[in-house]
Design a protein around this nucleic acid. Structure first.
Lengths: 93, 93
DNA sequence: CTACTATATGCCATAATAGACATATACTAC
DNA sequence: GTAGTATATGTCTATTATGGCATATAGTAG
């Protein structure tokens, strides 16, 4: 059973349909960050919650990771994210 | 309780996180369509299902409607949709 | 080996969603 | 008024997501 294009796109949008994960995307729009930096910036969320959010975004290919010693660095994996977010921001005023 | 920007964006992405609703968006990217045309194009889905899909997309402001006699015409309400979809299509190959 | 730090995973209860089906509403024609 | 067509809404159940908490893993230092 091969997934249709829109099934795959739906999974991407589902990964984006959560405010915590959008907070993460906002941070990564600013450039690569290690998990520790993301946690520092989003102190209001628990560590496992952030870790799961990163895993979900990665599972659909929106972000990628890179290990360096104990740290894991995440960055955006899709170029057009910034433009679309800017557009949405304008619409939502 | 005012919703944060990312709460609102999450709702928009949630509306997009479904293959049926993405099929509808695809059709509307081609221009305004009446519900009957959308139903004709998406015969595999039941009429109430399509109607609810349109309602959900409208509720978050992604599409708008216009009545003309018995018919209701829907069209996209956000400009950057096409670009982002094109980008996702490329990534998903 | 132990201890420590950074990050990920598992489990669980609650809440939200999808989609099938029945039904309702709105408009037109007569 | 009735009948018919186009579209919307309500109700239900199975599935899926959320987020809290406990725990596990991976890497480093000693």
């Amino acid at each position: 059973m091969d997934k249709s294009l829109n099934d795959k796109k739906a999974e991407i949008f589902k990964a984006l349909s959560n405010p915590v994960r959008l907070d993460v995307i906002d941070l990564l729009l600013d450039g690569e960050k290690c998990v520790c930096e993301i946690q520092q910036a989003l102190k209001k969320y628990e560590q496992p919650h952030i870790s799961k959010s990163l895993a979900k975004l990665k599972s659909v290919g929106l972000i990628k990771d890179r290990k360096d010693g104990l740290n894991v660095y995440y960055s955006l994996n899709i170029c057009c994210m910034g433009e679309f977010m800017t557009c949405l921001n304008k619409i939502l005023k």
